[in-house]
Structures are given as C-alpha cells and as structure tokens.
Amino acid sequence: MKQKAERKLWQKFDVFSVIIYVLLAVIAFSMLFPFWNAVVLSFNEGRDAQMGGIYFWPRKFTLSNYEQVFHTPDIWRAFFVSILRTVLGTLTTLIVTPMFAYALSKPHLKFRKFYMGIMLVSMYFNGGMIPTYLVVKGLNLINNFWVYIVMWMFNAFYATIFLSFYRGLPASLFESAKIDGAGEGTIFLKIATPLSKPTMAAIGLFVAVNHWNAWQDNLLYMKNEAWNTLSFLFVKMIKAQESLEGLAAQTGVSELSKLSSVSSTTIQLATMMVAVIPIICVYPFVQKHFASGMMIGAIKG
C-alpha cells in the first residue's frame, strides 16, 4: 500500500490534471475551513469574538471557554447520559440484531418466511411521527431513559448484513459442533459470534456514532431535563439564542442580541467540541470500515 501507485497507460499528467488537483484542493479546503473556524472560535475570548474577523487563528487565545464548560454540571450530566445510551444502546443492538439474523440464516427455521416478511415491512413502512409517539406513550416510555435504547435494538438494514454474513459460513462448521451435542445458542456464541467479529466491530461503530449523534428521540420522547443528551443540548442552545435574536429583531433593539450572546457563542462552540472529540477519535476506524464498501451493500439493499 505504501509504495506509489503504478501509473496506468491513460493516466498521463497534463493541464487537466492540474485543474483537477486545484479543484479538489479548493473543495477540501471549503470542507475543512468552516469546522476549523468553529474550533478556533472556541479558543478565542468571547467578547473579542463578537467583533468578528477571526478566520484561521484565535485573536485573543484563552482556555476560559473550556473552563466554563467543565464547570457546568448540566454539560457533565448530559455527557454521561450520552455515554450511557451509547454504550448500552450499542451493546443491546449487537445482541438483538445478530441473534435474529443468525436464526433467520437457518433454512429449516419455522415461520422463517413470516419473520423475513415482517423484517422487510419494518424496513420500508412505518407509522410516522404521531402514531409512533402514541405507541411510545402507551408503553410508558415517555420520559423514560430506556426509550433511547429499545427503539434502536433492532435494525433491519444491519440485520441483512449479518444475515448475508451468516449465510456465507460453511455449514460443515456447525455440523461438527452439533454432533458434539452443542445447542444453537452455544453454536451462536462460541462459533458464529467469534467469526463475525469484524462485522460486529464495523456495525458497532456505526451504531455507536448514531447513538452519540441522536437528538430527535430526546426532542420527542424526553421532557425530563435531567436525561438530556449532549447532542440535544445544542438544539436547546440554538433555540434559546434564536428566541433572543428574534426578540431583538422585532423590538429593533440590536444591542439586546449583542448583550445576550456575548461570550455565549464561544462557550457553545467549546461545548460542541466535547461532543465532537469522541467522533474524531473513532473516525479513523469508522472510515476504514465504510471505505471497504461494506455499508454500501446495505444501502443498495
């Protein structure tokens, strides 16, 4: 991999190559710069940031935004709620979904066609926001931490990935274990699961990232502030600021919006970094998996 790729017959370096490289460099820059700018602002003094004109580097460097963040108990709490839901959510998904797929990979499974059908239905049809909300309400899951977990435990797309993996395993692997008297549960745990480790790791990473980033279930089903997730804190920050800015625009008092958002933008961005750093940490692993094209198979269906 390290050695330079051999240049093919048609890949000669001409003026168009230069244009392509420049274009791609511009695209990459415009992808990276807005994020970098947010990072820079989180290290800048709040009042100074309000004057604008900060692009690539902090004008008045400070760590006080981060200090503020670390001294806010609500942020700590939301951080741990997010960690809890991510860990529990990923673990339960990695139990429920592959278990289902493993059973369905057995052609002799009774009602297999029915299970398959119901899985396909769940892939393409859903009741929509309100009926789902009413069911969740009926199950007493409103304002209940477990609403973050149970609705994600089964995922039909990941199930199809596991299903094609288990189907690809040679039947002889399982037959010898069966002759030794192992039950299906043991075979699943001792033979199928260790073999599926790479698949588990890849899907686990995706599930974890999705859990970490989720905010809509918090908005719809969790009114208890104590169980807010980190991702949802940002929604609340945006809404709080919007209402102030709206007020300022309506009353024509531009000083009001200036006053209220003094230093708050930079602190908000520092809080944002707390949510983004874990994503940056797992990103190399995630990228390795999806670049291999595995997740695309799931999209293609």
Binding site: I95, V96, T97, M99, F100, Y102, A103, L104, L109, K110, Y115, I118, M119, V121, S122, F125, N126, G127, G128, I130, P131, T132, L134, V135, V136, L139, V150, M151, M153, F154, A159, E184, G185, F188
Partner: peptide, 21 residues
Amino acid sequence: QLMVLPALICIILFNIAPLFG
C-alpha cells in the same frame, strides 16, 4: 425461536403497532 423473539417484539412494538395507529 428464542433468538428471534427480542427482535420480533421490537418490530411489532415500534414498527407494526404504529401502522395500526
């Protein structure tokens, strides 16, 4: 069949029941 059960309950509760809703 027991391995199918948890996923089946999830599908029925969060996908099929809302359809009836």
